[in-house]
Design a protein around this nucleic acid. Sequence first.
DNA 1: ATGGCAGGAAGCTCCTGA
Length: 254
Amino acid sequence: MKLATWNVNSLNVRLAHLLDWLGREQPDVVCLQETKTEDANFPAHELRLAGYQALFAGQKAYNGVAILSREAASDVVAAMPGFADDQKRVLAATVGGVRVLCTYVPNGESVESEKYRYKLSWLANLRIWLQHELKAYAQLALLGDYNIAPEERDVHDPRLWQGRVLFSEPERAAFRGLLGLGLKDSFRLFDQPERSFSWWDYRMNAFKRNLGLRIDHILLSQDLSGRARGSHIDKTVRALERPSDHAPVITELQ
DNA sequence: ATGGCAGGAAGCTCCTGA
């Protein structure tokens, strides 16, 4: 079973890239973030022709998440319990016996920002929700754009990013809090190239210079991590014309 | 310290992203 997560930065703009990529990679489950598409405009038909069912929770202009799957999905949840939020950032469903949680963690803007406080409270609630989900589903995968680079090796220049949003200590502590629930960072279960990143700024030729961050992750529950057979970041689509600023992360399960 | 790049909504510019 091949799991993937990709922040597409507008599904409308990226649909051709996505369809090509689906045909090439043939993932079983794909979590998308920043679809920026209202549900009425979601390209369900095109994806169906490509062999994928789609669940989606979108809104105009901002946010928006979706789960694509070849098999049918069940037990769909489109919001975190106990957290009133107009922003479409979570979607959960069960596919092929695996509980799939698709998340778009708030960016936070800067550590001084009100949005940063929202990010931290959002992450605190995510942890509580996960505790409940893990009790109900032993085989669980949490995929998404976390907007957190967990370790120094996940940042092209840790000194530059020290204390800044995406790499600040409270955010990294929240990430470790998720690992504390028994989740494993599937990417780090395997040997990886140095300077592996999943996001590169559009500016400053950051992709060509590999000035990136690893902020998109696939975490696996203890039970599921035993089935992991490989994980990698697919940089090919980031090199295309008019790309998303994020690359997909892929983890394969036995 | 700042800008740079991209998408969306709206519209001759601003907000947001990371």
